[in-house]
Simulated assay, not measured.
Amino acid sequence: MYAAKEVAGLGGYVFVMENEHDILGAIVVNRTGMNEYLAENILVYMAVKTEYRGKGIAQKLIAHTIKYCDGDIAIHVNKDNPVIALFEKQGFKSRNIEMRLVR
């Protein structure tokens, strides 16, 4: 809702890949408004329908996001997630380590 500006804020982007009436995948990017401290954009969600995984949908969504968004783009990915290789192929580099106190 934030990215689509349905709630107050800087908004962002929602990119959807479709084939006729079938949604194949989607990406949601929020603008941070904190360019001096964080990336201008944060990729908060990406999903590809199970039967379309491994067919280049995620790669195309990421490439479109890179082309369309102005400024840096950050994403938080679990260190054991195999999707890291896909983002590295698109030029993303590991920069920070998140530390979290789990309660």
Rank of each mutant, 00 (worst) to 15 (best):
F87P: 01
M99D: 09
E51A: 14
Y2E: 07
G71H: 10
D70L: 12
Y2Q: 08
T65I: 04
L61W: 01
N81L: 02
M46P: 00
F15C: 04
A47H: 09
D22G: 04
M34A: 12
E51V: 15
G12P: 00
G33V: 06
V29H: 01
V102H: 14
F15A: 08
L43P: 03
I42C: 13
Y13N: 05
N35F: 10
A8S: 14
C69I: 02
L24R: 10
D72P: 03
K79E: 13
G9R: 03
L24I: 05
R31W: 04
L38W: 11
L38D: 05
M34V: 02
A74E: 13
G56D: 04
V16R: 09
T32N: 01
E36A: 10
M46I: 14
K49D: 15
T65K: 03
I62P: 00
Y37P: 01
V44F: 06
V77D: 02
Y52P: 02
C69P: 07
E20W: 05
I75M: 08
V83R: 00
E40Y: 05
N30G: 03
V7I: 15
N41H: 04
N41I: 00
H64K: 14
H21Q: 14
G91E: 08
Q59Y: 07
G12M: 05
E36S: 09
D22F: 06
Y52A: 09
R53M: 01
V29P: 00
D22S: 12
V28I: 13
I84R: 12
N35E: 14
K93S: 15
I84K: 11
G33L: 04
H64T: 07
I27D: 00
Y45W: 12
I62G: 00
S94M: 12
G54H: 11
L10H: 05
V83A: 09
H64L: 09
L43C: 07
N30Y: 08
A47E: 11
G11Q: 05
G91W: 08
R100G: 07
L24W: 02
D70W: 07
E18I: 11
Y45R: 12
I57D: 01
